[in-house]
């Protein structure tokens, strides 16, 4: 398989898919430490693909003295997305690489919301003009129910040929800052007056609500439990009001 086309779009099933198995068990061919404050590694998996590895512990000790587990938060976001069937969070697994525990996430053929030089786009085209409206609405619903506090241009990706959004970096800062940035996804949906929940999205939310108790067992305790309680409350509210509220 050629690099860059190694993964298919994840199917909408709750069962582990081939991508996840490759991420979990694939032979690591190379690991390159990237330059930057956070110790992210670009990983090449033999024959089957590429990923980013982020160690779990100690990243935010400067701003939060207590350690926390990044693994649970990233996996939880992926699990919620799978149940919803939104296909917004790139596949991610827990894995130990080079003696470090962390998360290994598929590296997508997408970029932060820059305008790639390969595409001739008119001036004043923003990122939200480059993706399908349905993607914006799904991403806004996702961010609203998880209570995203830090969704900005640095932690979502745009796949321009497929008009698709990928949401990344579901770490401590995304969930637990006392005062947050909020979500560019929610702002974009509000700006376009795309706030009504119906049809497939309503069904997805009902499915999530039906699965939330088993998720609470799977991710019991600590930070994940707090997030899931919030998800449950906000999902119930959305199903009652059928509208993303304007909290911006």
């Amino acid at each position: 398989m050629s690099e860059g086309h190694n993964f298919e779009v994840p199917p909408k099933s709750h069962e582990p898919q081939i991508i996840e198995i490759v991420l979990e068990k694939g032979e690591i061919e190379s690991a390159k430490i990237l330059e930057g404050y956070f110790p992210v590694k670009a990983i090449k998996i033999k024959d089957d693909g590429r990923a980013l590895f982020k160690p779990s512990m100690g990243e935010f000790q400067e701003i939060r003295k207590k350690l926390f587990s990044r693994v649970d938060l990233e996996l939880l976001a992926f699990e919620l997305d799978k149940i919803l069937g939104f296909n917004l969070v790139p596949p991610v697994v827990a894995r130990e690489i080079g003696g470090e525990k962390g998360v290994l996430q598929q590296r997508m053929e997408a970029r932060p919301y820059e305008t790639p030089d390969d595409y001739e786009l008119p001036d004043l085209v923003g990122w939200s003009d480059m993706v399908d409206s349905e993607e914006i609405l799904k991403a806004a619903v996702f961010d609203h129910i998880i209570g995203a506090k830090d969704r900005h241009g640095g932690n979502f990706l745009i796949d321009i040929p497929n008009k698709k959004i990928w949401l990344i970096d579901h770490d401590y800062l995304m969930f637990f800052q006392k005062v947050g940035y909020g979500s560019d996804m929610v702002r974009a949906a509000l700006n376009r007056d795309m706030v009504d929940i119906s049809g497939d999205i309503r069904t997805a939310l009902e499915n999530l609500l039906g699965a939330i108790d088993s998720l609470m067992l799977k991710f019991e305790g600590g930070e994940s439990a707090k997030i899931l309680l919030g998800v449950k409350t906000r999902t119930e509210e959305l199903l009652q009001t059928n509208k993303i509220p304007n909290l911006v």
């Binding site: 990237l34 330059e35 930057g36 404050y37 956070f38 992210v40 670009a42 980013l52 982020k54 935010f60 701003i63 590296r107 970029r111 932060p112 900005h152 640095g154 932690n155 990706l157 990344i168 970096d169 770490d171 800062l173």
Partner: peptide
Amino acid sequence: LKYHFRPGYLLATD
């Protein structure tokens, strides 16, 4: 800046 740009696709130094 290092907290704002942290996912790997964009990464800021200390």
